[in-house]
Write a protein that binds this DNA or RNA. Sequence first.
DNA 1: CACCCGATTATCT
DNA 2: GATAATCGGGTGT
Length: 183
Amino acid sequence: MARELLGSLLVRRIGDQTLSGRIVETEAYKGLEDPASHAYKGDRGRAKIMFGEVGHAYVYFTYGNHFCVNVVAKDTKTPAGAVLLRALQPVEGVDVMAKNRGLAEPRDLASGPGKLTRALSIDRSFYGADLTVKGALYIAEGWVEPVERVGVSPRIGIKKAADRPWRFFLEPNVFVSRYRSRT
DNA sequence: CACCCGATTATCT
DNA sequence: GATAATCGGGTGT
């Protein structure tokens, strides 16, 4: 699913305003067998949602400053799993995203998991939200085949299970995260 | 571009 | 008390 989500559109509606971005970077997190996953310790706490319905949002707060958003994803035999959305290519409402971020440069607006939630005003109120139905936050229907290639690398910013190549990104693409991103 | 660091809080030991 | 699925600002090459 981390691969499949590349190229699809994440949409945030606020009143009559629409903000959206094309997903250009993702990371896969498994459950009980993935030491880097928040679901590694089981069906409890904030990770509870990762054991729930696919297509729902797992939003968590980290480093005392940032929210990150995941899409719950797993097959029917797997108890838990999610895909972290790491970067967006801004599409609609770029001016509002710039305002939310206090920046003007499009490539810096959503090029990181904490940046994209700030750009789209995504916070813990979306914990558990169903991203498959058109609401305040959803993934649009009509997935478009990416024209870019899919690059693969180890996941970023983790220490446990850091060897697993479960980060996926479209390349060439200037909107992917650049901190500590080596391909 | 590479590396370093402080901010700030939920979660775990 | 320590760590963390991060970011932005700083320094030095």
